[in-house]
Design a protein around this nucleic acid. Structure first.
Lengths: 150, 150
DNA sequence: CTAGTTGCAAACCCTTTGCATAGAT
DNA sequence: ATCTATGCAAAGGGTTTGCAACTAG
């Protein structure tokens, strides 16, 4: 259960920084880490609402910032105007495939990209620190749906 | 003079769609195409202001949308919260090196990336349409400034 | 003349902040 | 008891829209 490791790391962070492990924070991380998707604040808020768990919008924002600070989460912006968060613990660096039809986001890892980053940086006298590669297109599911309609 | 070709294409687009070639639209594209940078609406507005050309903020937004519609410009979001626009005409596909210190944006092109996109897409049964690769780091200028301070 | 354009103000969306109240330790 | 967390409402920043006045063709 990765979820519990993450909760433990969070709890440690809370203690170390003289913060408090509130009911709301627990509920939020419970939801966030139990769902393996790129969730937005709004997504998390809605899920909590649906479960009849009362947490304020603002608190979700503040908790997500905390999770980023302790490196359990990372902000991502895929251009639809909403910040989404991804799990960091136990995940190596990866990039994204984004379906422009259903907005599903798949992760992938390809070591060639890291090498390419170095080559390009070298060619341009640039000191590369990190990169983002986002490939936009149509996912398998949407593509087969499209085909069956023809 | 690429600028004039772009103006001509824009004028064509205007005529074809029964729109009007206003003084404001002319001023805006004049500024946008004469500067080879990724400008935001705010940048363009300020430049016009400085030149004592009176154009409303809203009009800049609307004109930039028009330029995107006729494929003379393209929206870009580099994560600083502002949409920026880049010239499209006569530019082949490229990616970006973004300096996290001075926010300068350099463009580069590397054919390997296109190939990589195909490989990754193939591995994931994904139909790739386009991609964005952004490499973040320190540009040559900032790096040498940093070194000289040590 | 007349349909499209402008530019202000107001509305929007997502996110952050101020502050009085509630809650964790 | 103390000091942080909460959650509302209000403010922020970027972007869009409604609308009366204006203007290109």
């Amino acid at each position: 259960m990765t979820k519990n490791i993450e909760k433990e790391i969070f709890r440690q962070y809370i203690i170390t920084n003289n913060l408090k492990f509130s009911r709301q924070r627990e509920e939020i991380i419970e939801v966030f880490f139990s769902i393996d998707k790129h969730l937005s604040v709004d997504d998390i808020y809605r899920i909590l609402k649906k479960k009849r768990i009362s947490v304020g919008y603002t608190t979700v924002y503040r908790t997500m910032r905390l999770l980023c600070e302790c490196n359990l989460a990372q902000e991502r912006m895929f251009g639809d105007g909403q910040t989404r968060y991804e799990h960091v613990y136990g995940h190596h660096h990866h990039d994204h495939l984004i379906c422009i039809k259903c907005r599903k986001i798949q992760e992938f890892h390809n070591p060639r990209i890291e090498r390419l980053q170095e080559i390009v940086a070298g060619d341009n006298n640039f000191r590369a620190l990190y990169h983002k590669l986002e490939i936009y297109g149509i996912c398998e599911k949407c593509e087969s749906e499209r085909r069956s309609k023809e």
